[in-house]
Nucleic acid binder design. Structure first.
Lengths: 252, 252
DNA sequence: TGTTATATGTCGGGG
DNA sequence: CCCCGACGTATAACA
């Protein structure tokens, strides 16, 4: 699994290593050591010389990690062109892409480690509790939102965006449902509000349109705004707990 | 910089290595090899046995990378508790946190490499082109938005959210400015719209209130909605290009 | 701690 | 390619 490992490579060795592997592009490459990083594109940044960990994946994505946090200090998603060159006797890695136009430049000052790992195969990964699954479940079992509800459409395109669920209630009123897999905020309320407005505008004037925000919970300010707009909230969880599943007769 | 490195460690060696380093917590730890990963928390996921790269940072954050993309396949930001244990003769890494309650569990099947790197010091990092900087620049030079504009407030709190810039134009009309560092979408238009409404509601009825969306560009549908709402768009870039800076007399 | 807003967000889907 | 919205978004600021 370790294809190649260099300890304290010289600039020339490192450049050769990087060029070789970025060409074949069949390994995950890592470089650790002192470097200086600049970025120019959607924004512009510079990082002082320090110890960083670089990761260069097969798909051409680059990330440079500092000691804290999930997010890399600098990065570049799926780069068009990655080149390793020698400048003034030092190895420089440049990762550029167009659309948007941006470049990350890494000046390798004192590299301790460079390695190529065989991490290629994509492997099965499944996730439960996404909004898409919530939507599928509710489309099959709209009674979880409210008895008597009939789903007319999913992902209905309106002029202002896609409506998660479009339905009719027991009394024939149209219902716009906005789903959130996590706690609903102000944002979700306004999203729902503008969908409801769009639907009302399209329907005959006397048609009644309800708006329901379905989420596991809602922030207090958002709940107040929701109330003010005469919209409704319905508690729905993305991941049913064991007891909920039992109570619902195993609908999920 | 390489504090310690193990090649093809046994489960016992690996568990000891992880326990030792997670306790001292002064290194960035990497583990590469075949593993199985499950997550349970805000959602639930499982990843089949495959080759992955684990990174465990000093701050207790964990990320597990697959061969593609910037984002890790699984992760855990700033974990409360990380433990390495032996289960049925295999090393298992568990990273849990509360708030939200979630756990990542890594079953180490066939580990090729474990290493501890000294990447500790935080180092200088500066970035240009953030929205905050945009706001500061425009607050000092409101004429970049429009001649005769006077800024009354920054980050003004309204009932529906914070208004980026609140100003008065040459004719004494109030102006609500919404900033976006990147292309403005529908969302920004509606945000601006509801800010303008909130301001209008607070002012005497005959007071004129304008709304300006300041961004480097805007999507076509958003521009149409904006026009329909009688709101305005002003092209403002987060990162002034060299020529723009010259044209503006070096205001930035 | 809860809520809000930003991000070089990233990523995937649909027209 | 543009547009849109979800994401286990992460992360910092602020009440």
């Amino acid at each position: 699994m370790i294809r190649e490992q260099l300890l304290q490579p010289t600039a020339v060795e490192l450049a050769a290593f990087l060029t070789r592997h970025t060409r074949t592009c069949d390994c995950l490459i890592q470089v650790a050591g002192q470097a200086e990083v600049t970025y120019q594109g959607r924004a512009a940044s510079t990082a002082d010389a320090g110890n960083y960990l670089l990761i260069l994946k097969c798909d051409g994505s680059l990330q440079i990690h500092h000691p804290k946090g999930i997010k890399p200090m600098n990065w570049q998603p799926k780069t068009d062109r990655i080149t390793a060159t020698l400048e003034d006797g030092m190895c420089v890695l440049t990762a550029s892409r167009t659309s948007p136009t941006e470049t990350v430049r890494v000046l390798m000052l004192d590299i301790q480690l460079a390695q190529a790992l065989e991490i290629q195969e994509e492997v099965g990964f499944v996730i439960a509790g996404t909004e898409a699954q919530m939507q599928a479940t509710l489309a099959r079992h709209p009674e979880l939102i409210e008895p008597g509800l009939t789903v007319l459409d999913r992902e209905l395109m309106s002029s202002v965006g896609d409506i998660d669920l479009y339905a009719k209630d027991a009394q024939g009123r149209y219902v716009v449902v906005e789903l959130k897999r996590a706690k609903a905020t102000h944002d979700a309320v306004h999203q729902l509000s503008r969908y409801v407005d769009a639907v009302r505008a399209k329907l005959p004037k006397r048609a009644k349109v309800r708006g329901i925000l379905a989420a596991p919970s809602i922030t207090t300010p958002a709940a107040l705004t929701l109330e003010g707009l005469k919209l409704e909230f319905k508690e729905i969880h993305a991941l049913p707990s064991a007891q909920e599943t039992a109570a619902q007769g195993g609908l999920f």
